[in-house]
């Protein structure tokens, strides 16, 4: 439907006898979830614009096992991890980028103990790197005059201390960045982590995503930015709960950057 993205699989690289600069780990959400697929596409548009020689695993990719692990199923996690590691090591993968902080955390921190050692970066870190190295030039007014507040995903921020990269990338859109009261190390969870995404919440007096969206709405933003497909879903639902879907949108950092460049 839209313009053609240039996406090559590892199999194709192998057939050509080449190695990509980096492997894009799309993740299950980025592959199947309708909203998250748009994030994958936006990120690839930026990679294409910067002429990054990247690969995906395509149909060979499988769940990192992160969500199984957080649910307590260490067996399933390690089965998934070892299958993935066999594949990644077979392809001699050195560097991985992903739009999902959960995949990022698991690949970066939990795979090494099982024999998978890679340089893993989150897509906001990689975008910052592309901009800093001059490979991705950002032009125009972008989101000038718009207020954007960034929601720190737990597994990117608190869990791995990546706070600045997403904010620096957002600042390239010329938007006015406003912080929520609880941000960075004290940011409130969106409610999806620890396998909560896949189950109904326990009995309580409020849903976590509604509380977190309230935090965000207090900054009177035009856009709530996230760097995680699950946070994106939770915040989008939260906006609906507050009946603000007409005035506030939830977008990924990559989408905002791509959009600001007319991609």
């Amino acid at each position: 439907m839209s313009e053609q993205l240039k996406v090559k699989t590892m199999q194709e690289f192998m057939a050509e006898g080449k190695q990509p600069e980096i492997l894009f780990w799309v993740g299950s959400a980025g592959s199947y979830d309708d909203r998250a697929k748009k994030i994958s596409r936006a990120f690839v548009k930026l990679l294409n614009k910067a002429n990054v020689d990247f690969a995906v695993l395509g149909t060979e990719e499988s769940s990192t096992g992160d969500v199984a692990k957080r649910a307590g199923n260490e067996f399933l996690f390690q089965m998934q991890a070892m299958m993935n590691i066999e594949l990644l090591n077979g392809y001699e993968i050195k560097r991985i980028v992903t739009c999902d902080p959960h995949s990022f955390n698991t690949l970066k921190n939990e795979y090494p103990g099982l024999g998978g050692n890679y340089d893993v970066v989150h897509h906001t870190q990689y975008l910052k790197e592309l901009i800093d190295k001059g490979r991705l030039t950002i032009t125009g007014d972008g989101y000038k005059g718009k207020r954007i507040t960034f929601h720190d995903p737990c597994y990117l921020g608190r869990a791995n201390s990546v706070f600045d990269a997403p904010r620096e990338v957002l600042s390239k859109t010329n938007a006015e960045l406003v912080e929520m009261k609880r941000h960075k190390k004290t940011a409130l969870c969106c409610g999806a982590g620890g396998a909560q995404m896949f189950k109904e919440p326990e009995k309580g007096d409020m849903d976590i995503n509604v509380m977190r969206t309230k935090d965000a709405l207090e900054t009177k933003p035009n856009i709530i930015a996230t760097g995680c497909p699950y946070c994106n879903t939770m915040m989008t639902d939260g906006i609906k709960a507050h009946e603000k879907e007409d005035s506030v949108t939830v977008m990924d950092v990559a989408e905002l950057l791509a959009d600001s460049q007319g991609l």
């Binding site: 395509g58 990719e61 896949f198």
Partner: peptide, 16 residues
């Protein structure tokens, strides 16, 4: 290989 019941062969559909 995914938390949702989708076919693994459809993993790359998002590209097109």
């Amino acid at each position: 290989g995914a938390p949702w019941p989708y076919n693994q062969m459809d993993r790359l559909n998002w590209v097109n």
